[in-house]
Simulated scan of single mutants.
Amino acid sequence: MEEDGCLYVDARSARYLPVFPAGAVDWDGSTLTTTNPRDPATRDEVVPGEEISLGGGGDEGMPEPGPTTVVPDACDLAERYFIVAAP
């Protein structure tokens, strides 16, 4: 689901903000393209409403910004986040 320029994933009756590794995703306003940083030829595309399988882990609140993650200011209302392992 896209809301205010932020993409959220609904899973297990909860909404999560997926936090991808820097450089691993591109959002063109309609399609999310993931790229495996270890193998740039490995790409996948998904649009809001489609199922996606993500590895990683999450928590409540917001993650601390760091050199490998970027969370836009508009996304600070997420109840939970999910740090995505490399796609």
Rank of each mutant, 00 (worst) to 15 (best):
E3N: 12
G5D: 06
G5I: 04
C6T: 10
L7K: 01
L7T: 02
L7M: 09
Y8E: 00
D10P: 00
A11M: 03
A11Y: 03
R12H: 09
A14N: 01
Y16V: 02
Y16R: 01
V19P: 00
V19S: 01
V19I: 10
V19Y: 02
F20H: 00
A22I: 15
G23L: 14
G23I: 15
G23F: 07
V25F: 05
D26P: 03
D26M: 10
W27G: 11
W27E: 02
D28Y: 04
D28S: 04
D28F: 06
S30W: 04
S30H: 10
S30D: 12
S30F: 06
T31V: 15
T33V: 15
T33R: 12
T35C: 08
T35Y: 05
N36M: 07
P37S: 15
R38I: 05
D39Q: 09
D44T: 15
D44L: 14
E45K: 10
E45D: 11
V46Q: 06
V47D: 05
V47F: 07
V47G: 08
E51K: 09
I52W: 14
I52A: 14
S53I: 04
G55L: 08
G56Q: 03
G56V: 13
G56W: 12
G58R: 00
E60S: 15
E60R: 15
P63R: 06
P63T: 11
P65F: 10
P67G: 12
P67K: 05
T69L: 11
V70C: 11
V71A: 08
V71H: 07
D73R: 12
D73Q: 11
D73F: 10
C75A: 09
D76V: 10
D76R: 11
D76H: 10
D76K: 13
L77T: 14
L77I: 10
A78F: 02
E79Q: 08
R80A: 04
F82I: 00
F82R: 01
I83V: 15
V84F: 01
A85W: 10
A85M: 07
A85D: 14
A85I: 08
A86Q: 08
A86Y: 04
P87A: 10
P87N: 11
P87F: 11
